[in-house]
């Protein structure tokens, strides 16, 4: 019952956020279109790279398109539906959680679902276009959908975890921004080009291996064995995000933590 009510509030919150964004239809649509173009442009560099070499880390051009689509998809899911997870630090430091704390709902869920970002929808559309270019196939489509959702949730959890460090460290927004952009940077390059320490880091500290590389490989190889692993990793990340956030909440200062100048 509580879960049902929570979902109802989240959906209502999406609806209202959507209405807010739709107030300015031109910027809503141009945001979406430009994000799609943006991604398409960035794929352009690969056209040049493929004139120099036939494959990168075992991936041909088609696979790279899929990789790009997948990266855009996880980013899109995370930013379209959980945008505020990426700005939690600001909300924490400047005391903007008050309104959520007095509501009888889960604070982290209410906060991160309180806004949508239109251009992230452009990412999702781009993701599916890329997915269809890779292969117009219902199985690929379903697998892709499931895995961009788990990937997006892992990215969101990472953002929530790093941003929650603001309860302890004031400047942790830099850490959070860097951590999130690291995932996004690496997600658009095939893991085959990395080796040694870098590769090790990509599957541990920066979870781009779990959120992006393994899923893309699963889709390419039609390998279902790692899907369960992915879902499990996703659940762990979410659980960890909740634990860190609620731990930190006890230290929340509601904007009273202004630093004094001497």
């Amino acid at each position: 019952m509580a879960a049902k009510n929570q979902i109802k509030v989240v959906l209502m919150s999406y609806k209202y956020s959507f209405m807010r964004e739709m107030l300015n239809k031109t910027s809503f649509i141009s945001g979406i279109v430009f994000m799609m173009l943006n991604n398409a442009c960035m794929v352009g560099q690969w056209i040049v790279l493929f004139t120099l070499k036939a494959d990168f880390g075992g991936y041909g051009f088609r696979e790279i398109i899929l990789l790009w689509g997948f990266a855009a998809g996880t980013y899109g899911v995370a930013h379209a539906f959980f945008a505020q997870a990426f700005h939690l630090s600001d909300l924490i430091v400047n005391g903007k959680l008050d309104a959520y704390l007095v509501q009888p709902k889960n604070i982290l869920i209410s906060v991160i679902t309180s806004a949508i970002i239109p251009h992230a929808l452009g990412d999702i559309i781009f993701a599916y276009v890329a997915c269809f270019i890779y292969s117009f196939n219902i199985k690929v489509f379903l697998l892709f959908t499931l895995l961009i959702i788990t990937g997006g949730l892992i990215l969101t959890s990472l953002a929530a975890i790093l941003n929650s460090l603001s309860f302890w460290l004031k400047n942790s927004d830099i850490i959070a921004d860097t951590g999130v952009s690291a995932v996004i940077f690496f997600a658009t390059y095939p893991d085959g080009i990395f080796h040694g320490l870098t590769k090790w880091i990509l599957f541990t500290i920066i979870p781009v291996g779990i959120a992006n590389y393994i899923p893309v490989r699963s889709i390419i190889n039609c390998d279902y064995s790692l899907i369960l692993f992915n879902i499990l990793a996703c659940i762990l990340f979410i659980a960890f995000a909740f634990i860190i956030f609620y731990r930190g909440l006890k230290r929340y200062a509601s904007g009273n933590l202004m630093s004094a100048r001497v």
Binding site: F56, T178, A182, F185, Y189, G192, I193, T198
Partner: peptide
């Protein structure tokens, strides 16, 4: 962030 981008490109060029 700057270092990360360079690590990526360094790996790419090595490849």
């Amino acid at each position: 962030g700057f270092t990360l981008i360079l690590i990526i490109l360094f790996n790419l060029y090595q490849y």
